[in-house]
Protein backbone atom coordinates (compact mmCIF):
# COMPACT_ATOMS: atom_id res chain seq x y z
CA UNK A 1 0.00 0.00 0.00
CA UNK A 2 1.35 3.47 -0.86
CA UNK A 3 -1.53 5.89 -0.45
CA UNK A 4 -4.95 4.88 0.78
CA UNK A 5 -8.04 6.15 2.43
CA UNK A 6 -10.80 4.25 4.15
CA UNK A 7 -14.36 5.43 4.41
CA UNK A 8 -13.22 9.00 3.96
CA UNK A 9 -15.89 11.64 4.53
CA UNK A 10 -15.40 15.39 4.55
CA UNK A 11 -18.17 17.84 5.36
CA UNK A 12 -18.17 21.62 5.22
CA UNK A 13 -21.00 22.36 7.58
CA UNK A 14 -23.91 20.38 6.13
CA UNK A 15 -22.34 20.17 2.68
CA UNK A 16 -20.83 16.75 2.02
CA UNK A 17 -17.70 17.27 -0.05
CA UNK A 18 -16.49 13.66 0.12
CA UNK A 19 -18.83 10.80 0.82
CA UNK A 20 -17.35 7.51 2.15
CA UNK A 21 -14.43 7.27 -0.26
CA UNK A 22 -12.30 4.12 -0.30
CA UNK A 23 -9.16 4.30 -2.38
CA UNK A 24 -5.75 2.70 -2.74
CA UNK A 25 -2.94 3.97 -4.95
CA UNK A 26 -0.13 1.37 -4.90
CA UNK A 27 3.58 2.10 -5.30
CA UNK A 28 4.59 3.12 -8.80
CA UNK A 29 1.04 3.72 -10.00
CA UNK A 30 -0.53 6.84 -11.40
CA UNK A 31 -4.18 7.79 -11.35
CA UNK A 32 -6.26 10.69 -12.55
CA UNK A 33 -9.33 12.02 -10.78
CA UNK A 34 -12.08 13.37 -12.99
CA UNK A 35 -15.19 15.21 -11.99
CA UNK A 36 -17.18 18.32 -12.65
CA UNK A 37 -16.45 21.52 -10.75
CA UNK A 38 -17.35 21.03 -7.11
CA UNK A 39 -17.26 17.22 -7.36
CA UNK A 40 -14.69 17.06 -4.53
CA UNK A 41 -11.44 16.52 -6.46
CA UNK A 42 -9.44 19.21 -4.67
CA UNK A 43 -10.91 18.19 -1.32
CA UNK A 44 -9.83 14.60 -1.92
CA UNK A 45 -6.27 15.67 -2.73
CA UNK A 46 -6.11 18.07 0.21
CA UNK A 47 -7.42 15.47 2.61
CA UNK A 48 -4.92 12.88 1.41
CA UNK A 49 -2.16 15.46 1.88
CA UNK A 50 -3.32 16.19 5.42
CA UNK A 51 -4.37 19.75 4.69
CA UNK A 52 -7.99 19.11 5.63
CA UNK A 53 -9.07 17.08 8.62
CA UNK A 54 -11.56 14.40 7.54
CA UNK A 55 -14.93 14.35 9.24
CA UNK A 56 -14.81 10.55 9.19
CA UNK A 57 -12.47 7.89 7.89
CA UNK A 58 -8.72 7.52 7.78
CA UNK A 59 -5.83 8.35 5.50
CA UNK A 60 -2.76 6.14 5.40
CA UNK A 61 0.49 6.32 3.49
CA UNK A 62 2.89 3.37 3.48
CA UNK A 63 0.73 1.67 6.12
CA UNK A 64 1.14 4.62 8.50
CA UNK A 65 -2.00 6.48 9.46
CA UNK A 66 -1.88 10.23 9.02
CA UNK A 67 -3.71 10.67 12.31
CA UNK A 68 -1.00 8.83 14.25
CA UNK A 69 2.21 9.44 12.31
CA UNK A 70 1.59 12.88 10.95
CA UNK A 71 5.20 14.00 10.69
CA UNK A 72 6.35 10.86 8.92
CA UNK A 73 3.41 10.83 6.54
CA UNK A 74 3.84 14.48 5.65
CA UNK A 75 7.42 13.84 4.63
CA UNK A 76 6.19 11.28 2.09
CA UNK A 77 3.35 13.26 0.53
CA UNK A 78 3.47 16.52 -1.36
CA UNK A 79 0.52 18.32 -2.89
CA UNK A 80 0.76 21.05 -5.48
CA UNK A 81 -2.54 22.96 -5.36
CA UNK A 82 -4.02 24.65 -8.41
CA UNK A 83 -2.98 28.09 -7.16
CA UNK A 84 0.08 27.68 -4.92
CA UNK A 85 0.94 30.56 -2.60
CA UNK A 86 4.49 31.68 -1.84
CA UNK A 87 6.35 33.89 0.59
CA UNK A 88 6.04 37.39 -0.77
CA UNK A 89 9.55 38.43 0.24
CA UNK A 90 11.65 35.45 -0.84
CA UNK A 91 13.02 34.86 -4.32
CA UNK A 92 12.63 31.69 -6.37
CA UNK A 93 16.00 30.31 -5.35
CA UNK A 94 15.45 31.22 -1.70
CA UNK A 95 12.19 29.24 -1.70
CA UNK A 96 14.13 26.20 -2.86
CA UNK A 97 16.83 26.87 -0.25
CA UNK A 98 14.25 27.06 2.51
CA UNK A 99 12.63 23.80 1.43
CA UNK A 100 16.01 22.06 1.23
CA UNK A 101 17.10 23.39 4.62
CA UNK A 102 13.86 22.50 6.36
CA UNK A 103 13.96 18.96 4.99
CA UNK A 104 17.72 18.47 5.53
CA UNK A 105 18.28 17.83 1.84
CA UNK A 106 21.89 18.03 0.77
CA UNK A 107 23.26 18.46 -2.76
CA UNK A 108 19.92 19.57 -4.11
CA UNK A 109 21.22 22.46 -6.19
CA UNK A 110 22.08 20.49 -9.35
CA UNK A 111 18.77 18.73 -9.45
CA UNK A 112 16.87 21.94 -8.77
CA UNK A 113 18.80 23.76 -11.51
CA UNK A 114 18.12 20.94 -13.93
CA UNK A 115 14.40 20.93 -13.15
CA UNK A 116 14.16 24.72 -13.34
CA UNK A 117 15.94 24.62 -16.69
CA UNK A 118 13.70 21.88 -18.05
CA UNK A 119 10.65 23.84 -16.93
CA UNK A 120 12.08 27.03 -18.44
CA UNK A 121 12.15 29.19 -15.30
CA UNK A 122 15.90 29.08 -14.65
CA UNK A 123 16.37 32.68 -15.80
CA UNK A 124 14.23 34.02 -12.97
CA UNK A 125 16.07 32.75 -9.91
CA UNK A 126 16.32 36.23 -8.34
CA UNK A 127 12.69 37.11 -9.04
CA UNK A 128 9.86 37.08 -6.55
CA UNK A 129 7.31 34.35 -7.42
CA UNK A 130 4.47 36.85 -7.05
CA UNK A 131 5.75 38.37 -10.29
CA UNK A 132 5.26 35.08 -12.13
CA UNK A 133 2.37 34.02 -14.29
CA UNK A 134 0.16 31.23 -12.95
CA UNK A 135 1.93 28.65 -15.12
CA UNK A 136 5.37 29.69 -13.88
CA UNK A 137 4.15 29.64 -10.28
CA UNK A 138 2.87 26.12 -10.82
CA UNK A 139 6.22 25.05 -12.25
CA UNK A 140 8.07 26.50 -9.25
CA UNK A 141 5.71 24.73 -6.85
CA UNK A 142 6.35 21.49 -8.73
CA UNK A 143 10.11 21.91 -8.48
CA UNK A 144 9.82 22.67 -4.76
CA UNK A 145 7.84 19.48 -4.29
CA UNK A 146 10.07 17.35 -6.50
CA UNK A 147 13.34 18.18 -4.75
CA UNK A 148 11.90 16.70 -1.55
CA UNK A 149 11.51 13.38 -3.41
CA UNK A 150 7.96 12.58 -2.30
CA UNK A 151 6.65 9.03 -2.45
CA UNK A 152 3.12 10.16 -3.18
CA UNK A 153 2.74 13.21 -5.40
CA UNK A 154 -0.66 14.88 -5.54
CA UNK A 155 -1.25 17.41 -8.30
CA UNK A 156 -4.33 19.59 -8.56
CA UNK A 157 -5.01 20.62 -12.17
CA UNK A 158 -1.34 20.42 -13.22
CA UNK A 159 -1.82 20.73 -16.97
CA UNK A 160 -4.29 23.60 -16.97
CA UNK A 161 -1.87 26.49 -16.37
CA UNK A 162 0.99 25.03 -18.47
CA UNK A 163 1.88 25.73 -22.09
CA UNK A 164 1.73 22.73 -24.49
CA UNK A 165 5.49 22.03 -24.40
CA UNK A 166 5.55 22.12 -20.62
CA UNK A 167 2.49 19.85 -20.52
CA UNK A 168 4.32 17.27 -22.60
CA UNK A 169 7.47 17.62 -20.50
CA UNK A 170 5.51 17.24 -17.27
CA UNK A 171 3.64 14.19 -18.59
CA UNK A 172 6.92 12.52 -19.55
CA UNK A 173 8.56 13.48 -16.29
CA UNK A 174 5.65 12.07 -14.29
CA UNK A 175 5.92 8.84 -16.29
CA UNK A 176 9.60 8.66 -15.29
CA UNK A 177 8.71 9.29 -11.65
CA UNK A 178 6.06 6.59 -11.70
CA UNK A 179 8.52 4.17 -13.30
CA UNK A 180 10.94 4.92 -10.45
CA UNK A 181 8.30 3.91 -7.89
CA UNK A 182 6.62 7.22 -7.03
CA UNK A 183 2.82 7.16 -6.87
CA UNK A 184 1.02 10.04 -8.55
CA UNK A 185 -2.58 11.15 -8.18
CA UNK A 186 -3.72 14.12 -10.19
CA UNK A 187 -6.95 15.87 -10.93
CA UNK A 188 -7.31 17.21 -14.43
CA UNK A 189 -9.61 18.11 -17.28
CA UNK A 190 -6.77 17.94 -19.82
CA UNK A 191 -4.56 14.95 -20.59
CA UNK A 192 -1.63 15.12 -23.03
CA UNK A 193 -0.96 12.06 -25.21
CA UNK A 194 2.21 11.38 -23.25
CA UNK A 195 0.40 11.35 -19.91
CA UNK A 196 -1.28 7.95 -19.83
CA UNK A 197 -2.19 7.10 -16.23
CA UNK A 198 -2.77 3.60 -14.94
CA UNK A 199 -6.08 4.28 -13.32
CA UNK A 200 -9.01 6.55 -13.66
CA UNK A 201 -11.29 7.73 -10.85
CA UNK A 202 -14.49 9.69 -11.31
CA UNK A 203 -16.08 11.74 -8.55
CA UNK A 204 -19.69 12.87 -8.65
CA UNK A 205 -20.93 15.11 -5.82
CA UNK A 206 -18.37 13.69 -3.43
CA UNK A 207 -19.00 10.03 -4.32
CA UNK A 208 -16.49 7.84 -6.11
CA UNK A 209 -18.56 6.52 -9.00
CA UNK A 210 -15.79 4.94 -11.07
CA UNK A 211 -12.44 3.40 -10.17
CA UNK A 212 -11.04 1.48 -13.10
CA UNK A 213 -7.90 0.85 -15.15
CA UNK A 214 -7.52 3.24 -18.06
CA UNK A 215 -6.59 0.45 -20.45
CA UNK A 216 -9.87 -1.33 -19.71
CA UNK A 217 -11.90 1.84 -20.15
CA UNK A 218 -10.20 2.72 -23.42
CA UNK A 219 -10.53 -0.77 -24.83
CA UNK A 220 -14.20 -0.97 -23.92
CA UNK A 221 -15.16 2.45 -25.12
CA UNK A 222 -12.90 2.99 -28.15
CA UNK A 223 -11.55 6.18 -26.57
CA UNK A 224 -8.30 8.01 -27.38
CA UNK A 225 -6.10 9.30 -24.59
CA UNK A 226 -6.54 13.00 -25.37
CA UNK A 227 -10.32 12.66 -25.34
CA UNK A 228 -10.31 10.44 -22.26
CA UNK A 229 -11.20 13.00 -19.55
CA UNK A 230 -14.17 14.47 -21.37
CA UNK A 231 -15.40 11.19 -22.83
CA UNK A 232 -15.22 9.19 -19.65
CA UNK A 233 -16.67 11.93 -17.52
CA UNK A 234 -19.63 12.42 -19.85
CA UNK A 235 -20.37 8.73 -20.20
CA UNK A 236 -19.92 7.80 -16.57
CA UNK A 237 -21.94 10.69 -15.25
CA UNK A 238 -24.73 10.06 -17.76
CA UNK A 239 -24.84 6.44 -16.62
CA UNK A 240 -24.77 7.36 -12.93
CA UNK A 241 -27.49 9.94 -13.31
CA UNK A 242 -29.64 7.56 -15.32
CA UNK A 243 -29.35 4.90 -12.63
CA UNK A 244 -30.05 7.50 -9.91
CA UNK A 245 -33.14 8.62 -11.75
Amino acid sequence: MRGACQDLTVKYGHFVALDHINLNIPEGQSAIVLGENGAGKSTLLRTLAGWIRPTNGRVAINDQYLAQQERQVRAWVKLVPDTPQFYSDLTVWEHLEIVAQANHIRHWQDEATSLLTRFGIHRNLRSFPSRFSRGMQYKLALVMSLITKPELLLLDEPYGPLDPDSQIFLAKYLAELVASGVSVLLSTHVLPDEGAPHRILVLEQGRLVLDSFVADVMAAGNITLASLPHNVLTRVLAKVRASDA
Partner: peptide
Amino acid sequence: AFIRQFWP
Protein backbone atom coordinates in the same frame (compact mmCIF):
# COMPACT_ATOMS: atom_id res chain seq x y z
CA ALA B 1 -0.89 25.27 3.49
CA PHE B 2 1.31 24.75 0.42
CA ILE B 3 4.43 26.08 2.16
CA ARG B 4 3.59 24.42 5.46
CA GLN B 5 3.82 20.93 4.01
CA PHE B 6 7.54 21.45 3.40
CA TRP B 7 8.25 21.94 7.10
CA PRO B 8 8.78 18.57 8.69
